[in-house]
Amino acid sequence: MELETFIQNFADQFMDPDADVFTADTDFHKLSGWSSLTALLEMAMIEEQYGITLTGNDIRNTPTLRALFDIIQSRK
């Protein structure tokens, strides 16, 4: 699994991904399109694409996409 692919998969869950810039060091909580629904969709995407079930706490307390990617990697 590559970080770049993960970032693209993450961006794909947003209603309007072009409205935000997604990088490994992006604090995704501050993106304009970030919402409760996006959080839910990301949890579903991670479960479906990577077979890892994250908790709401994981999402809330992880600051960047790189850190989220690292959590997924560490649980595989």
Partner: peptide
């Protein structure tokens, strides 16, 4: 604020 854009509103 810490729970605003999270899964908590769905709960």
């Amino acid at each position: 604020d810490e729970y605003l854009n999270s899964e908590v509103p769905f709960r």
